[in-house]
């Protein structure tokens, strides 16, 4: 808070300084702390359903193993790589914004958007397959490979659709935010003094990426049956 008075002199007329902050430094700190707090909320949001998933996994290990077998690990792995690369381009976009390089910024943001879209397309292909295979829970569910496990596999698929669906929703929201940030970058709003929105966007994007890093092994990779 000691730099408040200093900041006041220099940045008082910065177009993006909101009236209730003393200076851009305070505003920047508030924005990033706000996003971190929001991510704490998100961790608990996904944490709740992951806990429920884990409880049932302990209860029904066989069905959970079969459920994981039903997933196409290749597609999942592809999507994991796509998202990790998108996180890299997002980080580079934040860096470009910090350095005030508008062209690079737009390029990296666009790349991030493309990777995000690619992820959603792949997810859509998987969804389509599952729908065709009768792996959507409810009256549509008709999967009979192991009749005795069918109901628990259906329970697994509830989690599959629920968790990946929520994640995809976060991706779609992220893509929308990216478009908005790109528009602002295009208008040359960001520079070394003011780049908090890009940084906050980056935090969100990395978080959504990390959620997938958890979902991928949980839903695709854990084939083994562990008891106890």
């Amino acid at each position: 808070m000691s730099d408040m008075a200093l900041g006041n002199e220099h940045h008082h007329h910065h177009p993006f300084l909101q009236h209730h902050f003393e200076d851009l430094g305070q505003q920047h700190e508030a924005s990033t702390l706000g996003m971190w707090m929001f991510l704490c909320t998100e961790i608990l949001f996904f944490g709740g359903v992951l806990c429920a998933y884990w409880v049932y996994r302990v209860m029904y290990p066989e069905a959970w193993a079969v459920g994981a077998h039903l997933q196409q690990t290749g597609w999942g792995a592809t999507n994991t790589i796509v998202l990790i690369v998108s996180s890299l381009t997002m980080a580079l976009a934040v860096r470009a914004a910090q350095l005030g390089k508008r062209g690079q910024q737009l390029g990296f943001l666009f790349a991030t958007l493309i990777f995000g879209t690619a992820f959603l397309v792949v997810k859509g292909i998987e969804y389509h397959r599952h729908w065709e295979e009768g792996l959507f829970p409810g009256s549509h569910f008709h999967w009979h490979e192991h009749p005795e496990l069918a109901q628990k596999v259906q329970l697994f698929m509830c989690f599959y659709w629920g968790m990946t669906g929520l994640h995809a929703l976060h991706m779609i929201i992220g893509a929308g935010l990216l478009l908005w940030i790109m528009w602002r970058a295009y208008k040359n709003h960001f520079g070394p003094e003011y780049y908090a929105p890009v940084e906050v966007m980056g935090l969100y994007w990395h978080f959504v990426d990390i959620v997938w890093i958890f979902l991928f092994p949980f839903l695709y990779l854990i084939h083994e049956v562990h008891h106890g």
């Binding site: 109901q151 259906q154 989690f159």
Partner: peptide, 12 residues
């Protein structure tokens, strides 16, 4: 959906 996470019929 009619079935789901806590449904006793699915073992929920």
């Amino acid at each position: 959906v009619g079935v789901g996470f806590f449904d006793p019929a699915l073992g929920g």
